[in-house]
């Protein structure tokens, strides 16, 4: 009897796969076989997985990224760390192969009296403790699979004030999926108290779909369900609009020329003074972006796949193309 009721309630809990096909929703297998497998060359993956390499090619291609103060590759280099840091008082130290924001140490200031550095939380950190953090990074404590790693020292990003109130204790970053150099779909990930300051959607961060044409918020979801207000700050999420939107799209689109990877997720942050900056690339971007945008990825990807001579498009042309076809809001008059 209970089996029967379960069977009857199946359509309530499971989506009809044919409807999903009609809506152009992309599944994991589709993504892996037809997009990542087909358009991302295996030998290019290290460019993305190693943040030092990402930064190097970004500089080569004039793609805006946080300035690299220096890198530490071996235990001996640690002795020179304070020479490398020099007079900088605002910087962050991160592992080159880190994931999910692990092992990132953010320094805001230097305590002139004690010579200690001040962390983003306001607590002091002694030089000795800082050294130990770098040692841990080198030992692979924060890297995938525990492999030995390098530490990067970068200038700090000053987040644009337009985002204040949209994020709770964390980095609001913009994720743009770029397919063959065309920006295809975009979202912002806003951390919440539930996500513990992390921008991971399945941990409770709010995902906001962004219209490719205008940079305006399409809709917002938390735990796969639509939300209207940020759960911690109560800001109306539909008011969110990414400034310097064209610059963001151009930056994202140029990541294709720079990395050679056909299907990537680009994580972009907006610096108050320097504009959009590439934070990192992801060769296996997730699928939750479809839920935030209330649209499937496949129709957009297929349209680009059908486009002849797409390799000849310039960055501007690709961005224009994307804006024309993948927008949700009418352009501002």
């Amino acid at each position: 009897m209970s089996l029967l009721t379960k069977l009857i309630s199946l359509p309530k809990r499971y989506a009809n796969p044919f409807t999903m096909v009609q809506d152009g929703i992309m599944g994991m297998n589709q993504r892996n076989v037809n997009y990542i497998g087909r358009y991302n060359r295996r030998d290019l993956f290290p460019l993305v997985d190693n943040k030092l390499l990402t930064k190097r090619i970004a500089i080569e291609h004039n793609v805006n990224t946080p300035v690299l103060i220096g890198s530490i590759k071996s235990q001996q280099d640690i002795q020179n760390i304070f020479d490398i840091i020099g007079a900088n008082t605002e910087f962050c130290i991160k592992p080159a192969h880190g994931s999910g924001g692990k092992g990132i140490l953010v320094i805001k200031d230097k305590n002139a009296a004690t010579g200690n550095y001040v962390k983003s939380s306001g607590l002091d950190i002694t030089k000795h403790e800082l050294n130990r953090h770098v040692t841990n990074i080198l030992a692979g404590l924060f890297s995938l699979g525990g492999k030995p790693d390098f530490a990067l020292i970068e200038t700090l990003i000053h987040f644009d004030d337009v985002f204040s109130g949209f994020s709770y204790d964390g980095v609001p970053d913009t994720r743009v999926i770029v397919f063959q150099g065309f920006p295809v779909m975009c979202m912002m990930r806003l951390s919440t108290s539930a996500s513990d300051g992390k921008a991971n959607l399945h941990q409770g961060a709010v995902g906001v779909g962004i219209c490719i044409r205008t940079g305006k918020a399409v809709r917002a979801v938390q735990y796969n369900q639509p939300v209207e207000y940020h759960p911690d700050t109560d800001r109306k999420l539909s008011e969110l609009r990414v400034p310097q939107w064209d610059e963001v799209l151009k930056l994202a689109a140029s990541c294709y020329d720079m990395s050679g990877l056909g299907y990537i997720g680009t994580d972009i942050v907006l610096d108050r003074d320097k504009g959009p900056m590439l934070l990192e690339l992801n060769a296996r971007p997730g699928l939750a972006i479809q839920i935030c945008n209330n649209a499937g990825l496949l129709p957009r990807l297929r349209l680009i796949e059908a486009l002849p001579k797409r390799q000849r498009f310039s960055v501007e042309q690709r961005v224009e193309f994307a804006k024309e076809h993948f927008g949700v809001f009418s352009p501002d008059k």
Partner: peptide, 16 residues
Amino acid sequence: YTGFRLTEMKRFKPLV
């Protein structure tokens, strides 16, 4: 196989 996984039918139910 490039079709949907069974669990994705549940995951994308709200989206549909």
